[in-house]
Design a binder for these strands. Structure first.
Length: 590
RNA sequence: GCGCCCUUAGCUCAACUGGAUAGAGCACCCGCCUUCUAAGCGGGCGGUUGCAGGUUCGAGUCCUGCAGGGCGCGCCA
């Protein structure tokens, strides 16, 4: 299905071709001046430069060739040579009708679907998720849905951090604190057998408490750090005591993670972790050595990735540490190999904090050197940080890191408050009210994040995000619910949608906005930029709201009523699709 | 020190990859509910796009320099 921009680009392109000029000059975009036109082409300006002619003259010749097009109500030249196009109401109505009849709400699919893997989330075993994981989850989930909707075959992978130094630190800390567990670990490591039941006593809260202490000690105390590294290497060697205790860490973490992700409406197809590629590492190291990529350096084994012409000095990829353990770059590289051997993605999107840009550059270069990926196939889609109102990375009032679960509950509480303030949902059963509050909270958090371009940092301001007024998630839910309510009423009154006709300005604007969905999606897709979808959802809501205020629906005469009802239905379908692509679910009532 | 990113209305952010008069929301002011959810709609106020040059018909967008802010720079992830 082609949108109006595409249809008109073809027509204008043909007109340019008729003058012996390149077809691509006909590229049409939405008008910058809605008061003058629906669409515009700037091709004459570009052409004038190439062929050395007056742009207005060229534009006039193109316009002449377009004059007979029955879909166009007017073709005008303006300014230095803009070609302004206005559609007939009939052509607009036909497009709106096609969108209303389309289960995809007018969105196209890519011509060549790819296998795409989205790597996001990145929670760590033994550490509760904190606000830092929020953006990865929100943006990654949206990108996954967007790519899938465009027709690609997409897998989302949570990619646990479960195999590094922090595991060694924690095993050390837990055994220090609990002699009984230390005894069992030692016995198992020595090849003996022991009852591991006491491991069950280790809770996520314990790990949560011990990790910061251990990490701090590791920084300050060289001996402590070296022991943790040795334990890490031992774990990676599958020494039974370390390995079984580690499994307990993984289990207690998994439960909490699933709960947090579920609350956010985030799902993964793969729950793979660093440990899943452990078996690949030794052969991979051998292979890298055989290819002559590996170098010994200060007791470690590295791959140098610097290139001529680099503006900065990139560090090498550290493959094996001086203690013999795998580093995160090692598992990242092995994961690339693992994916190549299984899903064989044509594109991998790493949705990870922008601060890790250098790290990914190093890993990607190493992957290309090793022949595990082609140049450009691995793509780091970075994002900025979420800051507090002081402009610095978000912290609690006490200065600590806020757990994700706490943030979600905070937002949910705020949502309940807002609903009560507005006197909404009070006649609903308690469980439905809770469900609505949950959806409002998720919509508030996600829309606040996704309305900004991912690369920029933004300020976390709960009061603003949860407001029902203005450009917020709750506002969008309200709009969707309002349409649902309208459609329910039509249903009970036995009113059916019918053929769409366009007459009023508000109807025109709504139809044009519905048509712009495809442009927003392709931009979001090409630039890994969900904010284009968020922007569209908001514009659609506004256009509908204007229409809703200006054009009575159920009170209108039957033909108009049927048309407007169809427009309302098309709006709801597209709005829900757009929100779904942002990972936002819509309640039926509020 | 080297490198990357950022600086747009009082505040929070957009701007379809170089196009017309730089747009939204919040805040503030003025209108609109006996009619489909007013959590809404309409109107107004608000700008030397950090500063200085350059490229061209045309720059928030590209190039150079400067100022301010953030981040990264091998055995954490």
């Amino acid at each position: 299905m082609t949108d109006l921009k595409g249809v008109l680009s073809e027509a204008v392109g043909a007109a340019f071709a008729g003058l012996g000029l390149p077809t691509d000059l006909g590229r049409v975009t939405a008008s910058n001046r809605p008061d003058l036109a629906d669409f515009q082409s700037n091709g004459a300006l570009a052409a004038a430069k190439r062929v050395g002619r007056n742009p207005r003259e060229l534009a006039a010749e193109v316009a002449e060739r377009l004059a007979a097009d029955p879909r166009l109500a007017s073709v005008e030249i303006a300014g230095p040579g803009f070609i302004n196009l206005k559609l007939t109401d009939g052509a607009l109505a036909a497009r709106a009708q096609a969108i209303a009849d389309d289960p995809r709400s007018g969105a196209a699919t890519v011509s060549q679907p790819r296998r795409v893997l989205v790597d996001y989330g990145g929670p760590n075993v033994a550490k509760p998720m904190h606000v830092g994981h929020l953006r990865a989850s929100i943006i990654g989930e949206s990108i996954k849905r967007l790519y899938r909707f465009r027709g690609d075959e997409v897998l989302g992978d949570a990619h646990f951090g479960d195999w590094g130094y922090q595991m060694g630190l924690l095993i050390g800390a837990v055994t220090d604190e609990n002699p009984k567990i230390a005894e069992i670990v030692e016995a198992l490591n020595a090849g003996g057998s022991a009852d591991t039941a006491p491991f069950e006593a280790v809770t996520l809260a314990d790990l949560d408490r011990l990790y910061p202490e251990a990490a701090a000690k590791g920084k300050a105390d060289t001996a402590y750090r070296d022991r943790a590294r040795k334990i890490t290497a031992g774990l990676q060697d599958r020494q039974p005591g370390y390995f079984q205790l580690w499994q307990r860490f993984r289990d207690v973490t998994q439960v909490a993670l699933e709960r947090d992700f579920h609350a956010l409406g985030v799902d993964f197809d793969l729950w793979k972790g660093e440990s899943d590629v452990e078996d690949l590492i030794d052969p991979m190291v051998d292979e890298l050595a055989a290819k002559g990529l590996l170098e010994d350096d200060q007791g470690a084994r590295i791959v140098r990735v610097a290139r001529d012409g680099d503006k900065r000095e990139l560090p090498p990829l550290l493959v094996v540490s001086s203690e013999g353990s795998a580093m995160y770059g090692t598992t990242d590289l092995a994961t690339i190999l693992d994916r190549k051997n299984s899903f064989d993605p044509q594109l991998v999107i790493y949705c990870v904090d922008q601060r890790q840009a250098d790290h990914f550059e190093v890993v990607f270069r190493a992957a290309v050197l090793a022949g595990y990926a082609a140049e450009g196939q691995l793509n780091h889609v970075g994002f900025g940080t979420m800051n507090g109102t002081d402009g610095k990375p978000f912290k609690t009032r006490e200065g600590g890191v806020l757990k994700l679960a706490d943030m979600i509950e905070m937002t949910r509480e705020k949502a309940r408050e807002r609903l009560h303030e507005a006197g909404l949902g009070e006649d609903l059963p308690a469980d439905e009210f809770e469900e609505i509050a949950g959806k409002v909270a998720v919509a508030a958090l996600k829309f606040a994040d996704l309305q900004n371009f991912r690369g920029t940092s933004y300020v976390f301001d709960l009061d603003r995000f949860t407001s029902f007024e203005g450009k917020t998630g709750p506002y969008l839910l309200y709009q969707a619910v309002r349409v649902k309510s309208l459609l329910r009423r039509a249903e009970t009154e036995g009113v059916k949608p019918g053929p769409i006709a366009i007459a009023e300005p508000a109807e025109r604007e709504l139809a044009l906005t519905l048509d712009a969905f495809e442009t927003a999606l392709s931009e979001a897709y090409d630039r890994y930029a969900p904010n284009a979808v968020a922007e569209h959802a908001y514009r659609l809501s506004q256009a509908f709201s204007k229409f809703y205020a200006a054009c009575p629906i159920l009170q209108a005469e039957p033909a108009v009523r049927a048309s407007r009802l169809a427009l309302a239905g098309a709006t709801l379908a597209q709005l829900q699709t757009a929100l779904d692509l942002l990972g936002i679910a819509t309640p039926d009532r509020m």
